Simulated scan of single mutants.
Amino acid sequence: MIDISVTPADTTVSDYDGMFLYKKDTLQYISHEEGRIRPVYDSGIAVRYAWDYFEKDHLGNTRIALGMQTDTSVYAATMETAKGAYENAIFADIDKSDSGCKCRKKWRKGGM
């Protein structure tokens, strides 16, 4: 895959070897009948593995991935003026999306 959104263009090579997927010679996951097994790389710690199970509908389409790896990060778009710079950094086009929104304008003026 070639990503042309950055300069210079970034090329990513993916290799499939049966159930194994490697990107840039690094194991990304191992597929199995009910989901996948992902290696978790942390510097200074031995490689651990996270199991993801895929729940499928009656047509075989994956509807949800259940995993054992926890992530407690919360990304909230509060639209509060004080948090505007942070929210603009983590959400794409938030300035464009609130242009017609009266709520952020009221918050900026101290209303609501």
Rank of each mutant, 00 (worst) to 15 (best):
70 T>N: 10
98 D>P: 00
18 G>L: 06
102 K>V: 11
77 A>M: 10
44 G>I: 04
2 I>P: 00
90 I>L: 09
29 Y>A: 08
65 A>L: 03
75 Y>S: 15
71 D>V: 07
47 V>Q: 01
11 T>N: 08
100 G>Y: 06
46 A>M: 01
72 T>S: 13
52 D>A: 02
46 A>T: 04
54 F>K: 10
68 M>H: 05
32 H>N: 12
111 G>D: 10
31 S>P: 02
93 D>Q: 14
14 S>K: 15
19 M>S: 13
99 S>P: 00
90 I>H: 02
88 N>C: 05
54 F>T: 04
24 K>V: 06
75 Y>P: 05
93 D>C: 11
82 A>Y: 00
2 I>K: 01
62 T>H: 07
51 W>P: 00
11 T>K: 14
74 V>G: 05
20 F>R: 15
87 E>V: 01
56 K>L: 04
105 K>A: 15
40 V>M: 01
107 W>L: 12
111 G>E: 14
78 T>G: 10
28 Q>E: 03
111 G>N: 06
16 Y>D: 04
87 E>G: 01
100 G>I: 05
75 Y>G: 12
94 I>D: 05
108 R>W: 04
69 Q>R: 15
25 D>F: 03
78 T>A: 04
45 I>Q: 12
105 K>L: 11
110 G>K: 02
56 K>P: 01
81 T>Q: 12
34 E>H: 13
15 D>Q: 11
102 K>N: 05
63 R>G: 04
57 D>L: 06
2 I>E: 00
46 A>P: 03
30 I>K: 14
53 Y>R: 10
3 D>R: 03
74 V>K: 13
73 S>M: 06
108 R>C: 05
98 D>K: 10
21 L>I: 13
96 K>G: 06
38 R>Q: 07
47 V>S: 00
87 E>Y: 03
71 D>R: 06
108 R>D: 14
104 R>S: 08
12 T>K: 14
47 V>T: 12
85 A>W: 02
85 A>V: 10
64 I>H: 09
30 I>E: 15
47 V>A: 01
102 K>C: 02
7 T>W: 05
77 A>G: 03
66 L>T: 04
14 S>D: 14
105 K>I: 07
107 W>A: 08
76 A>F: 06
11 T>Q: 11
39 P>Q: 00
81 T>V: 09
41 Y>Q: 01
112 M>P: 04
64 I>C: 11
93 D>G: 08
67 G>I: 01
85 A>Y: 04
94 I>K: 13
99 S>V: 13
48 R>Y: 02
85 A>H: 04
12 T>C: 06
17 D>I: 08
33 E>D: 15
101 C>Q: 14
59 L>Q: 07
4 I>R: 01
83 K>F: 09
